[in-house]
Every structure is written in C-alpha cells, then in structure tokens.
Amino acid sequence: MTKLVLETEGDTVVVVRRRFAAPPEAVYRAHLEPELIQQWMLGPEGWTMPECLNEARPGGAIRYAWSDGQGGGFHLTGEILELDPPHRIVHVERMHLPDPTPDNHVETTFAPDGDGTLMTMRMTLPDAATRKAMLETGMEYGMEASYARLDQTQTRADG
C-alpha cells in the first residue's frame, strides 16, 4: 500500500496526504513538541536537527536547524498563525539557504480515520530559484541510497 500521496494543485500548491495508525491527538502533538519533532522531521537519512524551537501558540516562533553531520546544513524560521487542537495547524515558514526563501504558507489538518488519522498538508510550491537552492543544499544527496534502504524495508515488511 502506498501511504504517501503527493499531488500538485494548480501551479503553486502541493497537497500531501498520509494515514497514521495513531489518533489525531498524538499526530498533532508530534508536529508541535520539539522533543518529538527532533526525532522524525529529519529528511533524508543521515540528517539531524540539532536546534528545534516551536512556541506552540498563535503568533509563536518556529526555528529548526538541520545538519548533514559533515559541516553542511541550513535552517528554517517561521510563525504559527492558527492552532485548532488537535485538528489543524496553520503556519508560515521560510528556509535560509542562507538567503531567506519566499514565505511558504502551510496548512496541516488531522482528521479522525477509524482508530487513526488522515493528515492533509497543503503548501505553496517554492519558485524555481528557491527550488534550485534547496536542491543545492545537498538535500537530494543520498536519495538513491535512501530509496534502496526503503525498498529493502518494504520488501521485508511485505514478505
């Protein structure tokens, strides 16, 4: 089963959908509590998040810094706009690569789905220059290796 659905909507929006076995309360918390965020919001294998600030209130600040463990990395700043626990988080964010990218508006919703959660994240696509900068930070390196590892994991899980 493919768990992650990623679709473009019009020419500026990307919508991501993903089911979780855990209830909305738990998935919502994992998006706001730094000690939880630091354990999963890491991107490709090998990256860590040494710095994580999330003032989980409307108007609160967000600051995440990632490291590739080899001296490379980048950080993100943002602000929380709306919170409706445990259903909805609206925030803006920008990456510093090191120049700040245009603000990305992100709405994340958590809907009950049986015992679990259907999460929907709707975000603005970065422009071409921003995307190029993101690719150049090295986020794409190790992708092939990660794919291979993922394939192995899935084969084991399926088998």
Partner: peptide
C-alpha cells in the same frame, strides 16, 4: 516525496 516518506 522522498524526504517526507522518510519523515513519516
């Protein structure tokens, strides 16, 4: 897609 797949 790949970064999110790993994250989730």
């Amino acid at each position: 897609r790949n970064a999110l797949r790993h994250n989730y």
